[in-house]
């Protein structure tokens, strides 16, 4: 069967885009290792529907100290073909109000843990001679400024730089790394925006509508497949054509 035995690690699978990503990979016969803090109804549903191909474990990615042990327990001896860094938090406020503690928390979840996980993923791929693919979820806020998103956007900018350099460093081993730059999607992350704020954001896109989660998930999936074998070190925009 096509893709049989292919495996992916996806973070932030309990809601929003994470569910969509899991479903996309599972429907294409991949085995999915999923991480989030909470076990939602959707997680339980995926566990029921895909039993042996969906392996979920709870972890708080703000805990950077126990990540190695957790990774080893979750992945065990399996070879990984792909890693999708999807979990993130958005700490939004104007810069004059920024507080260090929530800023550090956001950097742990959005940047430090993903960098450490990339270390473990690359080592896994080296051990198993896998020409794997890494995809980080970035945000259009890196490229188009939005009031209140400076701190959040800075974490995604860090990931874009990290991804570009990962691609350069590991390209000769045929390990690829890309960023998927997503536009505003209707998920819990954007739920604190007022309808008026949302509308203004959508007016700044060519399509004038929110970015579809399914469109983002399909592109992430494509980047993890062999068909994307010549694509690395790129930022791919799936954002309703932000202008």
């Amino acid at each position: 069967m096509e893709n049989e035995g292919k495996t992916v690690l996806i973070t932030g699978v309990s809601k929003g885009l994470g569910i969509e990503l899991c479903t996309k990979f599972l429907d294409n016969n991949w085995k999915v290792f999923g991480i989030s803090r909470t076990k939602t109804e959707e997680i339980i549903r995926l566990q029921k529907s895909y039993e042996d191909r969906f392996s979920w474990k709870s972890y708080d990615l703000a805990d950077t100290d126990n990540l190695k042990q957790f990774f080893n327990e979750l992945i065990d001896k399996e070879a990984l073909n792909a890693y999708v860094n999807n979990a993130a938090v958005a700490y939004d406020d104007i810069i004059t109000n920024v507080q260090l503690d929530p800023l550090i928390h956001m950097y742990k979840v959005n940047v430090f843990s993903p960098i450490m996980l990339t270390k473990f993923v690359l080592r896994n791929m080296l051990l198993h001679n896998v020409m794997g693919s890494i995809v980080h979820l970035s945000s259009i806020s890196v490229h188009t400024g939005y009031k209140g998103l400076a701190m959040y956007a800075s974490t995604k900018g860090a990931l874009e730089a990290f991804s570009k350099n990962t691609a350069r460093e590991w390209g000769e081993r045929k390990i690829r790394s890309n960023c998927l730059v997503a536009g505003f999607m209707e998920t819990e992350m954007s739920s604190s925006l007022t309808p008026d704020q949302k509308n203004r954001i959508y007016q700044r896109t060519s399509l004038k509508i929110p970015t579809e989660k399914s469109s983002v998930a399909s592109m992430v999936y494509f980047l993890c497949t062999q068909e994307a074998s010549s694509i690395t070190g790129q930022n791919i925009f799936v954002d309703s054509g932000t202008i």
Partner: peptide, 13 residues
């Protein structure tokens, strides 16, 4: 350095 990374990983395993 990349070869040494692979060596490390194999020894660790």
């Amino acid at each position: 350095s990349l070869d040494l990374a692979e060596l490390t990983v194999r020894i660790e395993s």
